[in-house]
């Protein structure tokens, strides 16, 4: 066992886990944050994507010791983070995915939405090519991606609108 000091979704946590466990296993089986999915477990599918200091990384290939001192955001923290920034309800990305029907089985969705969040933080008005490129590490076997890209575009529009309203 090894003790880790992690910051997950804004909470500072001290937790012990077997030394060979990945961050994914700690999130799912110690912290109960099962929104982060265990897909291929070897870095191909992107289902375990979390944000580490704002950038998408794969929890299945991260050792928890390597992310001590960094801010980890999982899907469970996405809506609370949005509200901490003064927003209401869920993150606009989540709202847009809902409206666009950008999911079927939903297994890839947490990872996709976090990759999209990182993109919109960096590039508030992404082109279709930028969206496709940013989501290229997240495999979806149901939707064919079209509705996902539409949802990200809609989320960008929604955020631009919210910003304008905030400025008024």
């Amino acid at each position: 066992m090894r003790a880790y000091r992690l910051e997950v979704n804004g909470d500072k946590i001290e937790i012990a886990a077997p030394e060979h466990w990945t961050l994914l296993e700690v999130l799912r089986y110690k912290l109960g944050l099962t929104g982060t999915k265990q897909g291929c477990d070897k870095g191909d599918c992107g289902a375990c994507t979390v944000l580490v200091d704002g950038e998408p990384e794969l929890a299945c290939l991260l050792l928890p010791g390597a992310v001590e001192g960094k801010k980890i955001l999982t899907i469970e923290g996405l809506a609370p983070a949005h509200r901490c920034r003064g927003g209401e309800g869920a993150d606009p990305i989540q709202e847009s995915f809902d409206e666009a029907g950008a999911l079927q089985c939903g297994f890839c969705q947490p990872g996709v939405m976090l990759s999209a969040r990182a993109l919109l933080n960096r590039e508030p008005h992404p082109s279709c090519e930028q969206i496709a490129d940013s989501l290229s590490g997240n495999l979806c076997r149901c939707t064919g991606y079209k509705q996902i890209y539409d949802a990200v575009e809609a989320a960008a529009d929604k955020e631009a609108e919210l910003k304008t309203q905030g400025a008024d």
Binding site: P56, E57, L61, S136, G137
Partner: peptide
């Protein structure tokens, strides 16, 4: 190289 997440890591 690979995908965006792997390039970040």
């Amino acid at each position: 190289v690979a995908g965006p997440q792997i390039r970040n890591m």
